[in-house]
Design a protein around this nucleic acid. Structure first.
Lengths: 211, 211
DNA sequence: CCGACAATACCGCATTTGTATGATTTTTAG
DNA sequence: CTAAAAATCATACAAATGCGGTATTGTCGG
């Protein structure tokens, strides 16, 4: 038989923490190893005794769950973090993902869904509610006007813009491409006109699709 | 009773196209409205007769499925696009998402999974295979060193850096924050020292966590 | 062949920016 | 309270940049 998935729970509300622990520990193939009331407590111990999966509440007194993940993830990279929240609208999803969380589910998920999610997370997936998933997928969407704008650039101009994006100066680009600095400046000037911007940072932002 | 989910299929291989069509059309609550052999054909008609969900093969002769989505999505924004592929390793996922696709599944998925995915997509989700989901979640992950570097900045410095990231000049930032331009320059200089960079673009790149 | 466009290059000017030094005032932390 | 850190401002200079005009060469489609 396979070894159980070891789980830790970080949740300030006594009742929820208890019921989560009982749910996980009672299910076949899972074992609830540790529970914590605060992020600070979790930080101390989880680094010492890593588990497979951590269920992390976001709204915690003191340090919040996202910050906790940010600090814990580098110290136990093999542990997977699942954020648990009551909101599914929030921008916090992205912060959580940046911090190193891999899953993001709603507290109101039915018990069997929660267990499924833990399993999926442990097996290499990234379970999240459908609205969250949609939000994430949508965040990649590049507005057609953005890519269209780049289409007006010539390949040479794109080449130069790409180097500007890396933080190179006129001179460096010129040396890189074996052309005169004035040529590069002319190109950049043309790029600005086409993209309707007036500085490197603005041009690079458009190029990289940042707003 | 609810109206069925209308589906279109874009797939060059006859056999696959047929069996997909039969699967979808045969299932309760789905109707396969259109099928296409090439991206070009789909482009012509789908703009006229939008459907709820399009199953889009990526490897197509001529225009590929991603480019097809890119052109089609702006013209029928209410339509959801589900990419179908044999690979799940590829970087093409990100291109597909950027182009406007919302789901990304493997061709080898069992029939009932496919129908489930169509339903989920239509109801506001973003179904994708677990390895894909993991890859996407991971793409958000900011390396701890990157955030650590930003930690050495004071809140004022971050405030200024944030405005530089938007393409503002020294003067604009100064006006924004009601301080003298020389102060802003001093701050920027300090930022450069702390981040070990020598230009706006480099600083902004570090700030926004891209190399 | 011709016109449009891309790539190359130069000159020049005003402004912005990067760097350096120094100083004063607030805020913060021990 | 006191020392350290942060925020403020000034002055100065050289380099980089943004903006404008002009010109030559090569390529490509009509």
């Amino acid at each position: 038989m396979k070894t159980s998935i070891s789980v830790a729970i970080v949740e300030d509300k006594e009742a929820i923490r208890q019921s989560l622990a009982i749910l996980v520990d009672g299910a076949d193939g899972f074992v609830c190893r540790l529970t914590f009331e605060t992020a600070e407590d979790a930080l101390d111990q989880l680094a010492e005794e890593p588990v497979d999966v951590v269920l992390m509440d976001i709204d915690l007194p003191g340090m919040n769950g996202i910050e906790c993940v940010r600090q814990l993830k580098p110290r136990c990279p093999q542990t997977q973090f699942m954020m648990c929240t009551v909101y599914d609208e929030d921008e916090t999803v992205f912060d959580a993902l940046k911090a190193g969380a891999t899953a993001y589910i709603l507290k109101r998920s039915p018990p069997h869904k929660l267990l499924e999610a833990i399993t999926e997370l442990h097996e290499g997936g990234a379970p999240m509610s459908s609205t969250i998933a949609r939000k994430i997928a949508g965040s990649f969407h590049v507005s057609p006007t953005a890519t269209q704008e780049l289409d007006v650039l010539t390949s040479r101009e794109r080449e130069i813009l790409d180097r500007l994006a890396k933080g190179h100066s006129h001179k460096e680009v010129a040396n890189d491409l074996f052309v005169s600095p004035t040529t590069v400046r002319k190109h950049i000037f043309n790029i600005y006109e086409k993209l309707q911007v007036h500085s490197k940072v603005e041009a690079v932002n458009k190029y990289l699709g940042r707003k």
